[in-house]
């Protein structure tokens, strides 16, 4: 089948989405099904058929989603109803919409990178309870630091039984 000439092709738009919490591993196919479910549940099959959403790329904690031009609003609203992907809690934050994937890739490159816990020492009460970098105390419990980004610190309780993630700030750790 020969490709259609440009004038006969559908006009598409691409939406750049940041996946939160940082460090969430995304399976592109699973995310596609999750988004598809969200769109169908919210707008029904008729509108879902018009949006024709697809997950084009998933890189550096960001996802690029394709839709038909003119349906960005519908897709954006549906994306904000996504709360989990295969039992993993997440939120999709819309960053930008564009007509080309390349411009969105530039946006990804321009975004501030998330620092790994070992590369940036979290100060404060960590001094008392943590001999190693990447550990901290909060609410009289010990936590491992998973991600730091500016003021934001994501921690997980030490011990393999309770793998519950907490979302804190540096000030919380300093004041605890």
């Amino acid at each position: 089948m020969s490709p259609r000439p440009p004038t006969l092709r559908e006009n598409r738009r691409y939406i750049l989405v940041r996946v939160e919490p940082a460090g969430t591993t995304i399976d592109q196919k699973e995310l596609y099904y999750t988004i598809s479910d969200a769109v169908t549940s919210l707008w029904g099959d008729t509108v879902a058929g018009m949006i024709t959403q697809a997950v084009v790329a998933a890189e550096n904690g960001h996802v690029i989603i394709r839709c038909l031009r003119g349906t960005e609003r519908e897709l954006a609203i549906a994306l904000s109803t996504v709360t989990a992907c295969r039992d993993i809690r997440l939120a999709l934050r819309i960053v930008a919409a564009s007509g080309t994937i390349e411009s969105l890739r530039e946006r990804i490159r321009a975004e501030k990178p998330v620092t790994a816990p070992d590369s940036e020492r979290v100060t404060g009460s960590t001094g008392a309870g943590s001999a190693e970098p990447g550990e901290c105390d909060f609410a009289e419990k010990s936590f491992l630091i998973m991600y730091c980004n500016g003021q934001k610190v994501d921690v997980i309780e030490k011990g393999f039984k309770n793998a519950h993630r907490l979302f804190l700030t540096r000030s919380d750790l300093e004041n605890s």
Partner: peptide, 14 residues
């Protein structure tokens, strides 16, 4: 959780 928060623009959509 902060994951439950939505932007003002998204709230307008809902």
């Amino acid at each position: 959780s902060y994951l439950d928060l939505r932007a003002v623009r998204e709230i307008t959509g809902f």
